[in-house]
Design a protein around this nucleic acid. Sequence first.
DNA 1: GGCAACGATACCTTCCAGGTATCGTTGCGG
DNA 2: CCGCAACGATACCTGGAAGGTATCGTTGCC
Lengths: 283, 283
Amino acid sequence: METRELRYFVAVAEELHFGRAAQRLGIAQPPLSRAIQQLERRLGAALLDRTSRTVTLTEAGSVLLTEGRAALDAVDAAERRTRRAALSPTGRPGLVLATKASASRELLAKLLDAYAAEPGAVPVDVILCGPAEQERLLHEGRADVALLHRPFDSTAGFDTEELSTEGQVVVLPAGHPLAVRAHVHMADITGLPGLPLPRWPSPDGTYPPGPGPQVRDHAQLLQLVALGRACAVSPESCRAQLHSDLAAVPVLDAPKVTTVIAWPSHSRSRAVADLVRTAIRLQ
Amino acid sequence: METRELRYFVAVAEELHFGRAAQRLGIAQPPLSRAIQQLERRLGAALLDRTSRTVTLTEAGSVLLTEGRAALDAVDAAERRTRRAALSPTGRPGLVLATKASASRELLAKLLDAYAAEPGAVPVDVILCGPAEQERLLHEGRADVALLHRPFDSTAGFDTEELSTEGQVVVLPAGHPLAVRAHVHMADITGLPGLPLPRWPSPDGTYPPGPGPQVRDHAQLLQLVALGRACAVSPESCRAQLHSDLAAVPVLDAPKVTTVIAWPSHSRSRAVADLVRTAIRLQ
DNA sequence: GGCAACGATACCTTCCAGGTATCGTTGCGG
DNA sequence: CCGCAACGATACCTGGAAGGTATCGTTGCC
């Protein structure tokens, strides 16, 4: 199977319309029809049920859609990583590490310092990204290694090592009545009048329905808390980043958050292995 | 990047010889040279250093070799799973489950029975394979789900759920002096005169050097133990499969073995999800 | 029943993958 | 030091496949 055929099929399967898919691909509709027919012939499988009015996926077609997307991602990742390896002037490609902007700066700084001191260390670029974006970057080959936070981020398809586990705190406006408490429970903070928990976007970019403001990153979130429009439950380590107009109170029964370092499981990069070993030794 | 180019590159990178690679690919050498040049031009990266006597990989080339292999595996897996989905007569593709021949029959039987009783269950084919073969089958799309045994098998790149944890026993000929003990320690059984631990093949098919017979599967192993040529450390559950001429004694300080159910992390198959849910509920 | 939307088909053109022949370089044995 | 053999690169040709345009057949809809 050629990637061209796969890209054509994915386009049609997503649009469920040959004309629009052809337009998206920048080719005419007839060659697209033929390419899909040929793919079906070679696979010995009907991928699409088509009438002159509608196109629908067969069972085999929907399998090929998910599997094909994964395969195309892998091909694109291969291409990107190769390009990056070639671009690096030293011949020793640098590493790209993806992490949430809200992650522990202390852990990250310690890790980068310790790794830089290793013999054979290469330059590390850090990408600060929004929630759950690291997985995509790793899959797409835009990053070599990432810091993820379970249970929020999915570690599906990666190798991981646990680095640290911490409890969570609720972040409140400094003057809030609960801010003086030594600790609280989840029940104390769900449904606080005027301070709803915010809504994070789903992987598809849409927001779940419900009360609470929509946020895209941690800075927005803290801004909203400072404005008295929301409260937030975050890992303890965020305390180091809080301004004095915010207060943090431990939430005893919130789920523990584990920071893990993750990398594509087929990675054979010496640099990734060194960085991971350094990270483990720090703990 | 087309898969054809990728296959060509992988062939050359593995052979480090254009002539042999062309032969392996079933094409002539000049088109192969041209294809690689074109790939290098498009990537903007030198992949191979060539003199008229030797071919070596550049840094970028070795990145593309590992990443490209992974990508080709993904493409092949997509093709195979699609074919399988189409072949199944019901339109509801059956599942293929890969497990070691030596795995617990009890767990497997319970799982298959419980899943078959689920509404919407599909037929499950079971592949019994040798040690560490399940990972390959899953990656190649020949299996949809597998039972793996940590720490022996690598779960890299898969989603997993733990099913059970058990201790290990040493399997001995029935008449052996240690066979009457209630339990032993690892120190008791390393270097037993005449009963060495066997050697398993590495992933590349070769055997590590050392004493002890070479074995390929569990049946061979038990045969050798019965013949008094080896002893073996195995998960407890293998006791159910032991003939009376063999004895099993718990090894107190052997590492615990965890059976996990594993599936490709991008799997969106309803059947896989059902089977996994059933497996978790059994525990 | 006419029409419009849509995928399939027919047919042509262009381009590129692949083949054969040959060249230029290089290491090696005499 | 020279001839030779091995090897990748180049030159040139050919067939097939990818892509384009025009058009057909079917189908739902007003």
